[in-house]
């Protein structure tokens, strides 16, 4: 009887792993296809798409597509632009959104629930609906820089950073996480005479690693992977162009698919590396905030 139960458990476990491996492959295949295709000449790449060879590094394999991709577009510049914009925006977003959430959760002030509801409600507004008004707004904004007063933010890093520093989703994530922190800790610190800023710095943020990781990953994915329309309309010079707009360099009349795959492989490296570093904290936070990525 015991061996039957053990066999059943083994079978269930094997089935579960088989399903997980299958699902894993489904998610992995596009990445494998991308990397493998980046090593093949176009003719072979296109011919292989109808067979399993599409996922195998077989045939005429070389790094030629990478060499040509670097010749076609200033990839280093595009990646540097995207990484810079992403890092600064994510850093500012975590600071500003956590401060806002701290205020909503721990400070007593009139109208905070209504304001939080309004902020969260903005999640349903698609960016496309505000893109043009925002474009008109930033094109007339003043800025005091090293060259003195300037009018208009177009063709700058700041126009790609500042409008994205605060967003409803990140505030919501922090609010949900802060609500689950033990109130006793905060109250004890208040009794000891700690200021709100000190509590934020010394108690709340050090306990918020998982949500910071989650917010950083979600925000960085938005900034690095999904920033297309906004930089397209506010950046007209190559010097400030991000990676997603740069992808357009590879779509000529005759599309060089091998170079497209090489470019995509290269620009995926920072995203995958960032996720691998933070994945444990990310999963932990997803579990604790109840947010599904």
């Amino acid at each position: 009887m015991a061996s039957v139960t053990s066999d059943n458990r083994g079978l269930r476990l094997a089935t579960r792993y088989a399903v997980l491996v299958l699902v894993g492959f489904v998610f992995l295949f596009p990445l494998v296809f991308m990397v493998v295709s980046s090593l093949k000449p176009d003719q072979q790449l296109l011919a292989d798409t109808s067979s399993i060879r599409a996922f195998l590094p077989v045939g005429d394999i070389s790094l030629d597509n990478y060499v040509k991709a670097f010749e076609r577009a200033p990839i280093g510049r595009f990646m540097m632009n995207s990484v810079f914009v992403t890092v600064v925006t994510v850093g500012a977003s975590i600071l500003l959104c956590s401060l806002a959430a701290f205020s909503f959760v721990f400070l007593e002030w009139k109208g905070r629930n209504i304001l939080l509801t309004v902020i969260v409600a903005t999640l349903i507004i698609p960016f496309e609906t505000i893109a043009v008004p925002l474009l008109l707004f930033v094109s007339k904004l003043p800025w005091i820089g090293l060259d003195g007063l300037e009018i208009g933010w177009l063709n700058t890093y700041r126009v790609q950073i500042i409008p994205w520093m605060v967003d409803a989703l990140t505030i919501f994530l922090f609010v949900q996480f802060f609500k689950d922190l033990p109130r006793e800790l905060i109250e004890a610190a208040r009794v000891e005479g700690a200021s709100w800023l000190l509590i934020y710095r010394k108690i709340v943020m050090p306990l918020s690693g998982p949500v910071i990781a989650t917010a950083a990953i979600l925000k960085s994915l938005t900034m690095y992977n999904n920033q297309y329309l906004w930089p397209l309309i506010v950046v007209q010079d190559e010097a400030h162009r991000p990676v997603m707009v740069g992808l357009g360099y590879f779509f000529q009349l005759q599309i060089a698919w091998g170079e497209v795959m090489a470019y995509l492989t290269l620009i995926s490296v920072p995203v995958i590396a960032f996720y691998l570093v933070l994945q444990r904290a990310f999963i932990s936070s997803i579990a604790s905030t109840g947010v599904k990525g």
Binding site: L135, L136, S139, G152, L154, V234, Q236, E238, V245, G246
Partner: peptide, 21 residues
């Protein structure tokens, strides 16, 4: 000269026209 990717060129021009640029 300032070159743009062809696939997004028209959108860039229309946006710049709106922004007076």
């Amino acid at each position: 000269v300032e070159s743009f990717p062809q696939q997004s060129y028209n959108e860039s021009v229309v946006a710049s026209a709106l922004a007076g640029n």
